[in-house]
């Protein structure tokens, strides 16, 4: 049993709308997988199909060797954390966490002392000891999130499924919880799938990132993989920023408006193509054979970096250029840009 969860060509429609179109994915035991995609791409639907809250029309989901259609919701032992936590408002924190244990058939139910111990252990684990008696309305968003996670962990789930776990929290809390979740995962080793629309979150947290777009998995790979070698134009633009240049490939060179801009191509494309270049892969050069002339129109700050917006003749959108260690040009200055790295796709 080397695969924890196998998703085999799952298809799901709502009325006539295809929410998932043939999604296949293997998840290894102990892996932390991010399902990343824009809003409406089918992330929640896929998570709900894995959990058994939604039935796929085609395809199947296996836990190990077992087809999940043969398992009841209880037998699936899924730790599902909803986007808005869905804590039981009328129950205290302790009752919330104990809910799964108390729901077991009488023969398998731990006795009250064991349940109490387990609840306080879990609160310890999520670094909120002593909160047993609080009610959900008396907790902050970040605390609620962690209680929901503890409640899911209490049933010793086979798989932990988190739907936008930090979606409703503010930026600072998100960052703290991200690091916290990473540590928790290292400590407990649960096979985990979490949904996010935040690419930074996915890249930072996950062992592997699965990118969904319009109900299809466009790419699955390590964060480095998907970031450095995006498989589709969509991923280029969705992961990080990318400038788009319509080019023509002749031989080993790409031409933008009859001007060679990128050489040494090994891909055998030929003809019109789309070139995607990240802002950090544009360098201001004095003069070079493969360079793109432009005018600096705007300068702005982007996190630790400064970024120039450069107008290039023949392009309706300005190019974003990161000014990492370079001397900043002045607005209105004519510069030349060299592309140090780009991703090329045959034009659709």
């Amino acid at each position: 049993m080397s695969v924890a969860v196998t998703i085999e060509s799952v298809e799901k429609r709502f009325q006539n709308f295809p929410a998932l179109r043939g999604v296949s994915l293997d998840i290894q035991p102990g892996e932390l997988v991010a399902l990343l995609g824009p809003s409406g791409s089918g992330k929640t639907t896929l998570l709900r199909v894995i959990a058994g809250l939604e039935q796929a029309e085609r395809g199947r989901v296996l836990f190990g060797e077992t087809d999940t259609r043969d398992l009841s919701l209880r037998e699936r032992r899924i730790g599902f954390v909803f986007q808005h936590y869905a804590l039981f408002k009328t129950m205290s924190v302790a009752e919330n966490i104990a809910f799964g244990l108390k729901s077991r058939p009488r023969a398998e139910r731990p006795n009250p002392a064991e349940i109490k111990k387990r609840v306080s252990d879990l609160l310890e684990l999520i670094q909120l000891p002593g909160l047993e008696k609080r009610y959900p309305s008396q907790l902050s968003g970040g605390q609620r999130q962690r209680i929901a996670l503890a409640r899911a962990l209490a049933i010793e789930p086979r798989v932990l499924l988190l739907d936008e776990p930090f979606g409703a929290l503010d930026a600072k809390v998100r960052k703290d919880l991200r690091a916290w979740l990473r540590q928790l995962h290292q400590r407990t080793g649960h096979t985990t799938v979490f949904v996010t629309h935040d690419q930074e979150e996915a890249l930072e947290l996950a062992d592997r990132v699965a990118i969904l777009h319009d109900g299809r998995l466009e790419q699955v790979g390590s964060p480095d993989d998907v970031y450095d070698h995006p498989a589709t134009p969509f991923i280029c633009q969705f992961l990080g920023d990318a400038n788009h240049l319509p080019v023509k490939v002749v031989g080993s060179q790409a031409f933008f408006q009859d001007r060679p801009v990128l050489g040494g191509l090994r891909q055998n494309l030929g003809g019109p193509a789309s070139l995607y270049v990240r802002p950090q892969h544009l360098r201001i050069v004095d003069d070079a054979p493969l360079a793109l002339p432009g005018v600096v129109e705007h300068l702005r700050r982007n996190g630790p970096l400064r970024r120039a917006e450069v107008a290039v003749e023949g392009l309706s959108k300005r190019l974003d250029v990161d000014l990492a260690s370079q001397v900043a040009p002045a607005i209105g200055e004519r510069i030349r840009l060299r592309i140090t790295h780009g991703n090329l796709f045959a034009a659709a």
């Binding site: 809250l53 209880r74 869905a86 039981f88 799964g100 729901s103 409640r151 049933i155």
Partner: peptide, 24 residues
């Protein structure tokens, strides 16, 4: 969402109704 959570946590339909839905 509350009911679905209860069901994934292993509660029966009745238990879900009486401990989650009704108090809500």
């Amino acid at each position: 969402a509350d009911e679905e959570t209860a069901l994934t946590l292993g509660a029966s339909g009745w238990r879900t109704f009486f401990t989650v839905t009704l108090p809500n």
